[in-house]
Amino acid sequence: MVSSLPLAFKGFVQLNCHIRKMDTVKKENWNIIAAYLANEELDEEALELIGQLKANPDEWEKTVAFFNATTDAARMRRFDADKAWEKFQTKPAQTAKKRSMPLYRFMVKYAAAVALLLVASVLFWYFFNTQDSITYATAANDFSHPVYELGDGSRVTLNHGSSIELSSRFGKKIREIKLTGEAYFEVAPDQNCPFIVHTYNAEIEVLGTAFNVNAYSNVKNVEVAVNHGKVQFRSANNDAIYLEKGEKGILTHDYKKLTKMASFDLNELAWATGYIEFNAANLNEVARTLENAFNIKMNIDEEVDTMLMLTASFTRQDIDYIFEVAGITLDLDIEQTNRRVYLLKNKK
């Protein structure tokens, strides 16, 4: 009867039988097999069944191989390629740094060219010598916050979607940098070699300090926050203010108003400094600070009482650690609902 079937159909019948044969293990047997292979203790009866199954070595070997494959697959989930890539990305930055070093090795420190500085205007932005300049840039989705050493002992931490360009003459008489986006500068003091950051519509001059410049585009405000030291913040129409430690200057996007604020929240710099301090901060403030510091999105479940207060400080801790502390302190669960999205909710 079978031999009269077309060949192709015959093949199908065999394949089907084969698959059905793989499924000879009964439902409750899987419980015992799983427990046995997971090294759980078994009773007499269960062990007897395992003995019977082992009596068919081919089939048993397949079952074990299948079980091991599921274990391998599950364990492979421990390795997070995205996180690993972020970690890895700091390494190419280091090689780039090495290559740029020789440029500064023979750097000679001349007296400050004060005259040049006074003439230097916002027009500089357009005349920046891009030929031999060095550029460091981060992609819009690069949240690794790479740190670049500029050869004069200064360091720049770049936020996502930002770039800095060092003029070819960087470090000779003057240290000039063009910035788009947001960067945190720690400037090595050098009285004879002014450090100037140019943005679309402003420039910031310093003599040894740490400060943050947020200047993502020419349609947004430029914000300069000073962590320590002193800087001069100049606008396109030559307004200027001095900013000292703990002060912040804001230049509105129409270039018109340059204002000074006597204080700012140091947590604004957390993305670069890694330092976060909560002083009886309510949940909304905590969420906003962490969003800014780690480039994440935090949602708060409606049932959660947002007047909960947190007092804690963190120095260069990762987000998981901070969540753990915050979760225990406030008795909340923090669940990752998506890449970079977290949900705060009450403990069940």
Binding site: K27, W30, I33, A34, A35, E40, F67, T70
Partner: peptide
């Protein structure tokens, strides 16, 4: 135990 058994069976299928 039961859930592990069911999981394995389901994965196998």
């Amino acid at each position: 135990e039961t859930q592990m058994g069911l999981a394995l069976k389901e994965l196998r299928n």
